[in-house]
């Protein structure tokens, strides 16, 4: 296990370098220009060129990249073009605000999705199962940002229950519904699979009460895939954060990200890409480890 962990951590390095390489080049080769926002009849083009040069943007792109990489290895991701502050500080201020939204949403998702998926599977074909299936499809098909708008329309404009922005409830609901649907379908499927397996039939044949069969035997095994997939939903959660935070003006990393895209604040964009990628990879890793812990049959030494 330790050896496996070590190897996985080692794999992180080329992965992160690959990610930084792609995002850096895509960004810097595109026609955009961070000084474009300064345009004003009194600002001469040569002033913009000077500011660009101060930022090092006049150097060949590979030089810029190696400089960035060298500093990034020392955990220095440069400074924001718009605020002049270190990227680490800027993101450090925003990440906790995002987690404040993501963590409860994650928990809520788990609390809702597991019982829904399990009951749905146990009562396969019932009206409850049908309803859950239909709703989870609808949940997957609903554009997150539109869901956010509709919730705003209902709860802020019509009912006046919550303010449209600055309150956690609406973004929390939006984010939770967004991740709920897919997971519920997954949980249902894995529960169904387990229920069809021999040891469940054996347990039933032994005359164990249905409750014991389901909660003690089936559920435990059906949770394994859910644990795995949880790590894999992290990218979606992050993706959702970008849009949801923008709509609800939630001052987290997602909104900072979208804003820095519009401002072409390259250092911030790079920082956010790297941090989210790191979190996503770690999420995957934790999922794999969790998988190994829950299910001792899985041995990593051989796989991959």
């Amino acid at each position: 296990m330790r050896k496996y962990l070590f190897r996985r951590l080692l794999q992180l390095v080329p992965l992160l370098i690959g990610i930084s390489l792609i995002s850096f080049f895509v960004m810097h080769l595109a026609p955009g220009d961070p000084t474009a926002l300064f345009i004003d009849p009194n600002v001469k083009p040569e002033e913009l060129a000077r500011v660009r040069a101060n930022w090092g943007l006049d150097q060949p792109i590979y030089v810029q990249y190696f400089l960035w990489l060298k500093n990034a290895c020392l955990l220095d991701f440069g400074r924001s073009y718009t605020t002049g502050q270190p990227v680490i500080n800027e993101i450090g201020q925003r990440l906790p605000v995002t987690l404040l939204l993501m963590a409860p949403s994650f928990l809520l998702t788990l609390l809702i999705t597991i019982p829904l998926g399990v009951i749905s599977a146990v009562r396969k074909g019932s009206w409850f199962d049908n309803a859950v299936t239909f709703l989870s499809f609808a949940g997957m098909a609903i554009p997150t940002f539109w869901l956010g708008l509709m919730l705003m329309l209902l709860f802020s404009v019509k009912l006046h229950w919550f303010p449209a922005v600055g309150n956690i409830i609406l973004p929390l609901i939006t984010m939770t519904i967004g991740s709920l649907a897919g997971l519920t379908r997954y949980q249902r499927a894995s529960m169904l699979e387990v229920l069809n397996q021999d040891f469940i039939r054996t347990a039933r044949a032994k005359g164990l009460p249905e409750r014991v069969v389901i909660f003690k035997h089936a559920l435990r095994n059906a949770l394994i895939p859910t644990v795995t997939i949880l790590g894999l939903t992290l990218p979606d959660l992050f993706g959702g954060a970008f849009i949801i935070e923008t709509i609800f003006a939630w001052p987290g990393m997602g909104r900072l990200g979208v804003q820095s895209i519009f401002q072409r604040d390259y250092p911030i964009i790079m920082g956010i890409v790297m941090i989210s990628a790191l979190l996503i990879i770690i999420g995957n890793l934790l999922a794999d480890i969790g998988y190994a812990l829950v299910d001792p049959r899985i041995r990593y030494e051989k796989s991959k």
């Binding site: 300064f38 009194n42 600002v43 040569e46 002033e47 913009l48 500011v51 101060n54």
Partner: peptide, 11 residues
């Protein structure tokens, strides 16, 4: 100062 990122320089 050219090193200062002030776009007001041309004023």
């Amino acid at each position: 100062n050219p090193k200062v990122n002030s776009v007001r320089r041309s004023d």
